[in-house]
Amino acid sequence: MAPDRLTSGEPIDETAALLATFRFAAVIGWRDFRASYRWYTYVGGWLVRVVAQAAFLASVGLLVGSESVAHRIAIGAACASAATGALLAIPMATRERALGTAGLLVVSPAGLVPSMLGRAVDRLVDGGLMSATALVAVFAYLPEVRLLHPSSLLLPVLAMAMAYSSTCLAMTLAGVALLWPDARNLLSASLTVPLTLLSGAVLPHELTGRLALLSHLLPLGNGVQGCRQLALGDAAGALLPLLAEVLVGSVWLVAAIGSLRVTQSWATRRAGLV
């Protein structure tokens, strides 16, 4: 029989322990997701909703008599759906508080960070799947776009990149929601419209000046530009926005880790989550 690691005197690999906690939390999040949806409710309800939303917003362009504006808004709305599922990570982070397990996570050796980030993986997958589905539907509708083209393989990659950056932004604010759970839905809902507008997703014209700079620093902005480049057949032009979107997501990931560590420190000192 192999000796017990806790009694053998061998040092514990902290990195491996953190990764194991992250993986376990991701599995729990996936099981929660499966408990909430069946494939037919997800496809017939959630995915139909995001496609219908893109079609509805695109109809605004048709009302003003501009087909190009309709196409532009349809692509942007499909991109913005990545944030719809991702921002739900904010209220879902407070589930641990409702279940009474948040305090245990705070005092655990791994802490809040790997557990909370692991639980948010299903939000990343959900947001990416929603956006990819809506983008494929929009690209299949647009007559001037060749969907069955190798460059179209970038669509799901861009969708996942936008979901990644949006999820990291959500987890940055999840620490606030853990300390003040009454603000969870306010934080999630109040972010959706500004994020969609500042990314230029549903605006008829390109953003300029400081707003354009801000759109590149927030989730969605670069991904929206990349998808519009793909619609124009410029696959090479979509690569830089893709890399920029991943970079923005990584910056927000660092911010999320810092936010959760501050939350843990605050809760440890004031017994806020115990």
Results as ranks from 00 to 15, higher is better:
139 F>I: 08
139 F>G: 07
142 L>Y: 07
142 L>N: 03
143 P>Y: 05
144 E>S: 12
145 V>F: 07
145 V>H: 12
146 R>S: 14
146 R>Q: 14
146 R>K: 12
146 R>N: 14
146 R>F: 06
146 R>E: 13
147 L>E: 13
147 L>C: 05
147 L>P: 13
148 L>N: 05
149 H>R: 09
149 H>S: 14
150 P>F: 01
151 S>E: 08
153 L>T: 11
153 L>Y: 06
154 L>C: 11
154 L>P: 05
155 L>N: 07
156 P>Y: 07
156 P>A: 05
160 M>S: 07
161 A>R: 03
162 M>I: 14
162 M>Q: 10
163 A>K: 13
164 Y>E: 06
164 Y>T: 11
164 Y>R: 05
166 S>T: 09
169 L>P: 13
170 A>F: 01
170 A>L: 01
173 L>D: 00
173 L>R: 09
174 A>K: 02
176 V>D: 01
178 L>G: 02
179 L>F: 09
180 W>R: 11
181 P>G: 00
181 P>I: 10
181 P>Y: 08
182 D>L: 12
183 A>C: 01
184 R>T: 06
185 N>C: 04
185 N>G: 04
185 N>K: 01
185 N>D: 15
186 L>M: 10
187 L>K: 02
187 L>Q: 06
189 A>H: 10
189 A>Y: 11
189 A>W: 08
190 S>M: 09
190 S>L: 08
191 L>H: 04
191 L>T: 02
192 T>G: 04
193 V>F: 12
193 V>W: 14
193 V>I: 15
194 P>G: 09
194 P>Q: 04
195 L>Q: 11
196 T>E: 06
197 L>K: 08
199 S>M: 03
200 G>M: 05
202 V>E: 09
203 L>N: 11
203 L>P: 14
203 L>A: 13
206 E>F: 13
206 E>C: 08
208 T>S: 12
209 G>F: 05
209 G>M: 00
210 R>D: 03
210 R>H: 12
210 R>K: 11
211 L>C: 02
212 A>S: 12
212 A>M: 07
214 L>C: 06
214 L>P: 04
214 L>W: 14
215 S>N: 04
215 S>F: 10
215 S>H: 06
